[in-house]
Design a protein around this nucleic acid. Structure first.
Lengths: 205, 205
DNA sequence: GCCTTCTTGTGAAAGCCATCACATATTCTA
DNA sequence: TAGAATATGTGATGGCTTTCACAAGAAGGC
């Protein structure tokens, strides 16, 4: 039954399934069971089957899932069967690392625009891309039809940056600034703050 | 009632509360209501009150929470009222950015050891710290009494790196490698993979 | 001092999510 | 070919999480 309303928490696990399937593919697996997939992910087999059942019937009884086929299907479901052009805002140390990260393309993303507000950086080339002035964001993001942006600016500039992005029709934002940003309904946000992740673990130490 | 078994999902929100409280402090707030805190975080006031009630009664009826006091209490609960020494393994572009990130100390962490396996990098100084040979990890991590590590090595090296860390008594690992690592019970892991975060959003585009 | 307004902490209810368990189908072995 | 083993998809169950709603306490105005 393909199209009920799928819980966010289920959608959040699909990229993990996809990532593991691609590793299995590299290792030469042709079929994989929910049991094996779950073992690798630390997730119960039942949960994996239930999650996938939201989108259709991908497995074969007695055999499991065709790795290549399920990978393809998940890419389609997640809308990463093509390559999304992505804008990167903020080209400090972290921005540099992200610009040079070569893991994006195979996952369905490519950084095609880089912005910074530092006059000393504007015009420089990073990872084969020119750093543009943030003042040109509205024009360029519109021209390129960008819908996804990565924010790697200081906390103090994050909300203003996001506001501009949202006005430019960006609908998905990966936020590296350690601050809560607010966006209108319909705009997706994911936050990455290493301190938050670390503090979540120290509770148990 | 301070000491029931607190759900993981509640623990995971505490760092977000703490982060926002510290911003409120900078803005000069002395008191804050669960309503205002929730508004900033996109979380319901009831949930914040319920979460905090797992650990005690921190608020005052009619007034709200003393920002400074609640911040202090949350730091204590999360065990970040001191500064944890942290080891960073892998000093590529991402490792460099993390080593130079100045946001850790105020959150309760300090990178005191950096490792890499590249002979060309070993001995170099990054952010005031010498890069050590990964071969010296067991000795140095033991000497420094490290319990927390950040893994920023290639996927192919991640599991082996983690295995060594676990043997060295590291009990919390922030993993930037885009792969699922397995650890024994009692070892905390948090994963950061930008592609996974992005794919989680593209579903909705 | 009194009344209004505000806010917390919490039991109860509602809603969401993970697990269980099994009918069904396929594969493997001999 | 038959029987054992394997594995999916799913209704039912149980547990966990969030929200609701309110008693009780505190602050502010006059």
């Amino acid at each position: 039954m393909p199209v009920d309303k799928v819980p966010d928490i289920v959608v959040g696990r699909l990229p993990l399934y996809l990532r593991t399937l691609n590793y299995l593919l590299e290792e030469g697996y042709e079929m994989v069971s929910s049991h094996e997939l779950g073992r690798r992910l630390g997730i119960s087999p039942a949960q994996i089957r239930k999650d996938l059942s939201h989108f259709g019937e991908f497995g074969k009884q007695g055999a499991g899932y065709d790795v290549k086929y399920l990978s393809t299907q998940l890419k389609h479901i997640l809308h990463v069967d093509g390559v999304w052009p992505v804008a990167l805002v903020g080209c400090g140390a972290l921005g540099h690392a992200l610009a040079n990260y070569n893991g994006f393309v195979t996952k369905g993303f490519e950084i095609v625009l880089i912005f910074d507000n530092d006059p000393a950086k504007i015009g420089q080339v990073v990872a084969g891309k020119v750093i543009h002035d943030v003042a040109d964001m509205p024009r360029l993001i519109c021209e390129y039809g960008i819908r996804i942006a990565i924010v790697a600016v200081p906390s103090s500039a994050a909300q203003a940056t996001v506001d501009v992005l949202v006005r430019c029709q960006v609908r998905a934002i990966l936020n590296y600034a350690p601050i809560n940003i607010s966006v209108p309904p319909g705009v997706q946000v994911q936050n990455i703050d290493p301190s938050v992740h670390l503090q979540r673990m120290t509770y148990y130490l």
